[in-house]
Amino acid sequence: MSEPEVFGRIRDEIAKGDVMLFMKGTPVFPQCGFSAAVVDVLSQLGVRFHSVNILTDQELRQGIKEFSQWPTIPQLYVKGEFVGGCDIVREMFETGELEQLLKEKGVALASAA
């Protein structure tokens, strides 16, 4: 069985940067509280990231859930690896695990400058 065509588009998006956030809305104007919370965490760490507004593309909105086998948005990827959704990202941030992961993966943090 071949994979959905949208998976190729998702891989292309993930490859665009070290940190990719699939979210509802944009970093400047998040359209859900969970997406806003992840943007806030990344901003606090000073992480430069790319984002995709899944609200503008229904195929992508459904496809990302199937691709990651994760039912909710937002979804954070670091160096091509799925990290998790809002709760996981927030918890990792609070424990310092997210900052550690980013450093291990070689992602520059403004707070480390």
Rank of each mutant, 00 (worst) to 15 (best):
S2A: 05
P4H: 02
P4F: 00
P4Q: 00
G8T: 06
R9N: 03
R11P: 06
D12M: 02
A15P: 00
A15F: 05
K16A: 01
K16H: 00
G17M: 00
D18W: 02
V19K: 00
M20E: 09
F22Q: 06
G25H: 03
G25K: 03
V28S: 11
F29E: 07
P30K: 10
P30V: 12
P30F: 09
P30I: 13
Q31E: 09
Q31W: 01
Q31R: 14
C32Q: 05
C32V: 10
G33L: 08
S35F: 06
S35A: 04
S35I: 13
A36C: 05
A37V: 14
A37N: 11
V38Y: 06
V38T: 13
V39G: 00
D40Y: 10
D40H: 13
V41K: 08
L42D: 02
S43A: 07
S43D: 11
Q44C: 05
Q44I: 00
G46W: 10
G46F: 08
G46K: 12
G46N: 13
V47R: 09
V47E: 05
V47L: 07
R48H: 13
H50K: 15
V52A: 11
V52E: 05
V52W: 12
N53I: 09
I54L: 07
I54S: 03
D57W: 01
E59W: 05
L60Q: 01
Q62W: 12
G63M: 07
I64V: 15
K65C: 09
F67E: 04
S68D: 06
P71N: 06
P74R: 07
Q75E: 12
Q75Y: 11
Q75F: 13
Y77L: 06
V78Y: 13
K79L: 03
K79Y: 10
E81M: 12
E81K: 15
F82P: 15
F82Q: 14
G84S: 12
G85C: 12
C86L: 07
C86A: 10
D87V: 10
I88T: 12
I88F: 01
E91S: 14
F93C: 07
F93K: 13
F93H: 15
E94W: 11
E94D: 10
T95R: 11
T95P: 00
E97N: 02
L98I: 08
L98D: 01
L98Y: 11
Q100W: 06
Q100K: 14
L101D: 02
K103H: 05
E104V: 02
K105G: 03
G106H: 04
V107A: 00
V107K: 02
A108F: 08
L109V: 15
L109W: 10
A110N: 14
A110R: 15
A113Q: 15
